[in-house]
Amino acid sequence: MSARHPGLLRRLLMHRQGALGLLLLIAILLLAAAGPLLWPGDPWEMAAPPMLWPGEDPANPLGSDVMGRDMLTGLVSGARVSLMVGLVSTLIATVLGTLVGALGGFYGGRIDAALMRLTELFQTVPTFVLAVVLVAVFRPSVATAVLAIGIVSWPATARLVRAQVLSLRGRDFILAAEAYGIGTLRLLWTQILPNALPPVIAISSLTIAHAIQTEAALAFLGLGDPNVMSWGTIIGGGREQLIEAWYVCGLPGIALIVTVLAFNLLGEGLNDCLNPHLRSR
């Protein structure tokens, strides 16, 4: 089963959507990494005249916001923040979700029932409202946003992992391993999880996309970190001048869409490549 990995990248590149997603993502990553070298400076510095339109002044190619901060510097710095928020919160969600799903699926019975009730609880509570509660209540910062998003995003992963574990549990090679007397935890760790992982990777890509959107939405409500320039922060700050200078909200929004699109496409591609039997659908 692990033999599928060498060919994954090639298969992904053959997949139209997956390849596009991968390319977009690489471009965004490059921009986030190289941006500070190409457009150095503090994104908070109020250096330009306020509310310059994009193209109005070559010194600020994408214009400036209401406080005279360069939009391009802000967008590039925001890319790093948004990607970081997406990745870390997804990591939290994936670990939590895998843990809950694997334990529930593997042990079954009461543990499973309890864990599934917990999952159900988190799926009945409006997740965004819960995230807002968490962030509002514990002072808005990047850390609280990451934690809050992670905490509300795990149920989908948990259900997926549980379903995978359940289906693997009855397979011959697991039964055989069990018969050899391999400990349950080791069995879970060495045999079941690696085989359950591919769809988790695919769904993680979608979770990242959603996490990035959620961070922006939190910042839009004024619950962003006031010391960190994220795309959401720029949108939230530009809201007051929406009509006169819509590009302040518009540009980071477009950056956000491209990024989310890249992750969605990639997730899609991964899904198709990692689950070939679903491919025909």
């Binding site: 959507q17 959107q213 922006a216 939405a217 839009f220 909200c249 956000l256 969605n264």
Partner: peptide, 22 residues
């Protein structure tokens, strides 16, 4: 459809207000 899935609703709302109302 892929695009519509990627667009944050609040942002789309803001842009719609700019265009269709303002």
């Amino acid at each position: 459809t892929l695009l519509s899935y990627a667009v944050p609703t609040f942002w789309l709302g803001l842009m719609a207000i700019v265009l269709f109302s303002a």
